[in-house]
Design a protein around this nucleic acid. Structure first.
Lengths: 230, 230
DNA sequence: TTATAACATTGTTATATATCAATGATATAA
DNA sequence: TTATATCATTGATATATAACAATGTTATAA
């Protein structure tokens, strides 16, 4: 696995979580003393489905995919960007990961002893409240996702996802996806071949531009119409 | 809508939440003074997708379905039984329901002013911690569900669901489902016709017994095998 | 008691989508 | 530079599933 270093200045860390503002100095010291900063290369697993939760995972820098490993295919449930906690529901829940998280690019994860974080959360209501809000938002996201996947067919689904990337994630009509076609397929719950096919359909129709993994949304209104039609 | 009464003795309520044990007497009084007990008949909506969260919803008695209303079809994400909170993620999250909850049988809901509950949660870490654990478990459940739906095909899905009802929900090989065939289909994310077809396939093969909405699992091992095959 | 609606069942047909297969393009290592 | 693997593309085929249609069954209300 990857290199790790001990955290040495969480107070001044430019990547620190907003939730830390709810903690006082000694609590942050406590985190710092129980935190390893681990660097993962693209493709490396950060946590593995079926294993026990021993640490809270905070993505300081980089981006990761959270996916469920099925028998034949994987399903990517969400992409997580920097300055976000990963998998709080497993920390507060049954303490077993029911998904795998892997780096999409070189990423830095702060691994904080799970018991320490739980104890902290139980002694600081403002901090716990922040974590709970985060967890709630993440749950709401997955609720929306499960529906997208089950209510629309391929073209609508892919249209939605392209709009989501451009408007919500990158906030730019042009964006550089860190996903292979296969990963994009796993995110859309469709076959890789159909993903490619439909992307190129959209390209041929002038709805999007594609250059490798860089996409440009040329006609968002058309995508929105496709999304609405299902 | 349904009849409601004011809560008058939360302390001694036989349906009270475990999380209330974390609150002291005056806090419970506070809940009691801001709680309406509303009775819903089967089919009535308890909260509606797209509307604002004004109350925390606690299912004291009965059972409900939580589902997302799509364009053509609904998707039931989970069934909730008595003595459970409903939709904590909306309370702590963006305060908009992105699903509808409806009663499956006559049910009693405690509706507690949202701001009161949030204030209470923010002043009592043990209570908040219980709610967060509940929320986490519920999130984990939906994670599993999204995968079940997307990784298996009809027969495996339905096998899983029958096993889930008998082993996890009712803890009995015989159980009386409160779902119509259409609702069971919406829970399995498949068409009503195929639901009926496959159920009757299983019946003809002696794997299950069916009498209206009462089911008996006769050969769980076969169901498990079907589930594994996909 | 009959009429009406909701629910359940079964067969048929259409189609969206996965799967299979082959080939091309690009990056990586030897 | 060539070899090798990963990734992307395109076409052809098979099939799981939804959608349609018709009818039977049960509950509910008038």
């Amino acid at each position: 696995m990857a290199k790790f270093i001990k955290a040495n200045d969480c107070h001044a860390c430019p990547y620190k979580s907003y939730s830390l503002t709810k903690l006082d100095g000694t609590d942050i010291d406590n985190i710092q003393n129980n935190c390893l900063i681990v660097t993962f290369k693209r493709g490396e697993n950060i946590c593995k489905q079926g294993t026990e939760v021993t640490h809270a995972l905070y993505l300081a820098k980089g981006s990761v995919k959270l996916f469920v490993e099925g028998k034949n295919k994987n399903l990517i449930l969400k992409l997580i960007n920097e300055r976000k906690y990963i998998g709080l529901q497993s920390l507060f829940g049954d303490r077993i990961y029911n998904y795998t998280v892997a780096a999409l690019e070189d990423s830095q994860i702060c691994m904080i002893n799970a018991d320490i974080i739980l104890k902290l959360a139980q002694s600081n209501v403002e901090y716990l409240f922040e974590l709970t809000k985060t967890l709630s938002e993440s749950t709401n996201f997955v609720y929306k996702k499960i529906v997208d996947i089950n209510q629309k067919q391929l073209r609508g689904r892919l249209a939605d996802i392209l709009l989501y990337f451009s408007e919500t994630v990158f906030k730019n009509p042009t964006f550089d996806l860190k996903l292979t076609r296969k990963e994009l397929a796993e995110y859309s719950s469709m076959s890789m071949e159909n993903t490619v096919r439909i992307l190129n359909e959209y390209k041929k129709d002038g709805i999007i531009g594609i250059d490798g993994r860089a996409f440009t949304i040329l006609q968002p209104e058309i995508l929105r119409k496709i999304s609405e039609l299902g």
